[in-house]
Simulated assay, not measured.
Amino acid sequence: MDAPHTHATDRSQLQLAARVVGIVFLLVGVLGFIPGITSNVDQLEFAGHNSDAMLLGIFEVSILHNIVHLLFGVAGLALSRTWSGARNFLIGGGAVYLLLWLYGLLIPHDSSANFVPVNTADNWLHFFLGLGMIGLGVALSRRRATSRV
């Protein structure tokens, strides 16, 4: 008869969600540098509202913007290793994106204060990302996984 196995790599749904979100951020960060997926890559600025590069032709990006996506992705992967890290990444990261949404609403897009840069499409993406990340973090952490396979 086979003995029951425990897997040290078992992940909760919360951890899996954080890992998937991290992978998506990494992918978006990389895609922001690829011509064809990002239009006007030759006009990619380090930061500021003068960057005319557009991810998928919709979202204004800069080198800084892409680096932030890459760093968020790395953070998501690293924090998804633990239950509490995954929860903190999703809820805390979601809060950061809601703050970025507010920033985008309050700062004129052609202002020198618009260093990220953001446009209207970015603003609404940040809003839904923030709500989605917080929603995942809250919903999936309601019942902490206590059983092991």
Score class of each variant (00 low, 15 high):
residue 95 A to Q: 10
residue 43 Q to F: 03
residue 30 V to L: 09
residue 110 D to G: 14
residue 95 A to F: 11
residue 78 A to L: 15
residue 66 N to G: 10
residue 100 L to V: 01
residue 64 L to S: 04
residue 137 G to S: 12
residue 128 F to Q: 01
residue 79 L to M: 15
residue 51 S to Y: 09
residue 122 D to S: 14
residue 84 S to W: 10
residue 128 F to N: 05
residue 46 F to S: 03
residue 66 N to R: 08
residue 53 A to N: 04
residue 59 F to T: 00
residue 113 A to L: 14
residue 130 G to V: 01
residue 95 A to R: 03
residue 65 H to K: 12
residue 69 H to Y: 10
residue 52 D to H: 12
residue 91 I to V: 15
residue 125 L to N: 10
residue 48 G to L: 11
residue 88 N to F: 13
residue 128 F to Y: 12
residue 30 V to T: 04
residue 74 V to I: 15
residue 125 L to W: 13
residue 38 T to P: 12
residue 62 S to G: 14
residue 37 I to C: 04
residue 62 S to Q: 06
residue 45 E to L: 11
residue 74 V to W: 09
residue 41 V to G: 01
residue 91 I to D: 09
residue 98 L to F: 02
residue 52 D to L: 14
residue 68 V to D: 04
residue 43 Q to C: 00
residue 46 F to M: 11
residue 77 L to N: 08
residue 55 L to K: 14
residue 138 V to Q: 06
residue 133 M to Y: 13
residue 64 L to Y: 15
residue 122 D to P: 13
residue 104 G to Y: 02
residue 138 V to W: 14
residue 101 W to T: 04
residue 134 I to W: 08
residue 59 F to I: 06
residue 40 N to G: 09
residue 133 M to T: 02
residue 97 Y to I: 00
residue 84 S to A: 13
residue 131 L to R: 00
residue 82 T to N: 10
residue 98 L to K: 09
residue 58 I to C: 02
residue 105 L to V: 04
residue 115 F to Y: 13
residue 122 D to I: 09
residue 85 G to W: 07
residue 36 G to N: 06
residue 83 W to S: 10
residue 116 V to I: 15
residue 32 G to T: 06
residue 133 M to D: 02
residue 142 R to S: 04
residue 71 L to W: 07
residue 75 A to K: 02
residue 119 N to T: 02
residue 75 A to Q: 03
residue 39 S to Q: 13
residue 100 L to K: 02
residue 140 L to P: 15
residue 31 L to N: 06
residue 76 G to I: 05
residue 56 L to Q: 10
residue 66 N to M: 00
residue 80 S to N: 10
residue 89 F to R: 00
residue 135 G to C: 14
residue 104 G to L: 05
residue 85 G to C: 10
residue 114 N to M: 03
residue 126 H to A: 12
residue 49 H to T: 04
residue 86 A to Q: 00
residue 92 G to D: 04
residue 93 G to D: 08
residue 46 F to E: 03
residue 103 Y to N: 11
residue 83 W to H: 15
residue 77 L to W: 15
residue 134 I to M: 15
residue 139 A to N: 05
residue 38 T to F: 10
residue 49 H to G: 08
residue 87 R to C: 01
residue 55 L to I: 06
residue 70 L to F: 14
residue 76 G to R: 14
residue 112 S to K: 12
residue 119 N to K: 05
residue 115 F to A: 05
residue 111 S to L: 07
residue 54 M to H: 11
residue 110 D to S: 12
residue 92 G to T: 07
residue 68 V to S: 11
residue 49 H to I: 00
residue 95 A to W: 08
residue 69 H to V: 00
residue 92 G to R: 06
residue 107 I to G: 11
residue 89 F to T: 01
residue 52 D to C: 02
residue 110 D to A: 08
residue 35 P to W: 13
residue 32 G to Q: 09
residue 102 L to S: 02
residue 85 G to S: 05
residue 30 V to A: 14
residue 62 S to K: 13
residue 133 M to W: 06
residue 69 H to R: 09
residue 87 R to D: 01
residue 122 D to Y: 09
residue 133 M to V: 07
residue 93 G to K: 06
residue 32 G to K: 08
residue 51 S to K: 02
residue 59 F to D: 01
residue 58 I to L: 15
residue 62 S to V: 07
